[in-house]
């Protein structure tokens, strides 16, 4: 693995460890507290901290997952050409777009999709 990719993957792993823990704890807390989807959305809507947290979460995932997947594919299959890097870039873009779209949708319900 390229040293820069290595550092990026390990750095985002540290971020994700924290982000996943906060995400799961918040989710469990909200569900066990009996909040409905509408009540959750009313709390997340317009909350800048919430948006910032999930933007960081999504960006970290978009960097971390494709680098790891690239390593697995390189080691377990014969696919090692530049096209693999392009495919992983596309995968990263997909995670980024879908993730940010979801975070924005919860921050601004009804604002994104007509």
């Amino acid at each position: 693995m390229n040293p820069l990719l290595y550092m990026a993957q390990r750095g985002t792993a540290a971020l994700l460890a924290l982000a996943v823990a906060v995400h799961l704890a918040t989710m469990v807390h909200a569900v066990r507290g009996g909040l409905s989807a509408t009540e959750i959305l009313s709390r997340t809507a317009g909350n800048g901290w919430f948006l910032a947290f999930y933007c960081v979460f999504v960006c970290a995932a978009a960097i971390h997952a494709p680098i790891g997947l690239r390593s697995v594919i390189r080691e377990w299959t014969g696919w090692r050409s530049r096209s693999l890097d392009m495919a992983m870039l596309a995968f990263a873009t997909a995670i980024l777009v879908l993730g940010l779209r979801a975070a924005l949708a919860v921050y601004q319900p009804g604002g994104l999709v007509p």
């Binding site: 693995m1 390229n2 040293p3 990719l5 290595y6 390189r74």
Partner: peptide, 9 residues
Amino acid sequence: VSGDVGCHS
């Protein structure tokens, strides 16, 4: 010792 053939793998 860096990169694909080295320690980072």
